[in-house]
Simulated assay, not measured.
Amino acid sequence: MSSRHILSGPNIALIAVFAAFIAASTLVPEVTLAFGVPFSLQTLAVVLAGLCLGPWRGAAAVTLYVVVGAAGLPIYANNAAGLAILAGPTGGFLVGFIPAAWLVGYVAVLVRKRIRLSLPALIIAGLVSIPVVYAVGIPWLSQITGLTLGQATVAMSPFMIGDAIKVVIAASLASIIHRAYPQLMPANPVQKTAVDVEEAATA
């Protein structure tokens, strides 16, 4: 896909909208558990971005969210912001959201290429986010807090059940969105979206 299509108006708008949705997800009341890691709806929003936008646009939306928060806008959990958050115990989970959104989107596109995007298929695609986020977040947490990897994994294990529930909710929302906008996602990871094709034809 050319840079012209990547930077098309519809793509930029979708990335911005989903970045804003991720930011808005932190406004929902949350519970802060061990080592300052909050239980919020961020995971739901991140997974929804990947399921709806595909790999690169989903990851771009999450990246925009992380960068804006690091720049000082209080859009992280608990109205936090700044580079200090990325350097703290939760930083690994924020960074892990980026590859997680990309992989969720990639799997969703591959699933769509082979079968329709049914709710079970979307749930499976969404669940791949969990090991990715924790593969980054747990070692980061271990390094910052001095916990062993085993201790950090045990500390974070209660979140995994909640994240699985949020994946199911995100998949349900994505299923509704895809029924309403069936051309939102490309048919394979390197194919242009219907919007891009239409723009190219009218250029």
Results as ranks from 00 to 15, higher is better:
L48P: 00
L141V: 14
A201P: 10
N188H: 15
Q191W: 09
L53K: 08
G150D: 14
E199G: 10
H178K: 08
A164F: 07
Q151G: 15
G50T: 13
A101V: 01
S8P: 05
P38R: 11
L173G: 10
A24H: 10
N79D: 11
I176S: 09
I15E: 00
I176A: 15
V67G: 03
A200D: 12
E30L: 14
S40P: 09
Y76N: 05
P186I: 03
G91P: 12
Q191G: 04
F21A: 01
F18H: 04
V67N: 00
I177H: 01
L44D: 07
N11P: 08
V37M: 08
A34T: 15
G36Q: 11
A180C: 13
L86V: 11
L110R: 14
N79K: 13
G150M: 12
A49C: 04
M1E: 09
W140H: 15
L53T: 00
M185Q: 13
L127S: 07
G72V: 09
T148V: 01
H178M: 11
S40A: 14
A152T: 05
A13F: 01
Y76C: 03
A201Q: 15
A19I: 05
A70K: 07
P99M: 05
G88Q: 11
L103W: 02
I130D: 06
L110D: 02
S3H: 10
S129F: 05
Y134S: 02
S157W: 15
A100S: 10
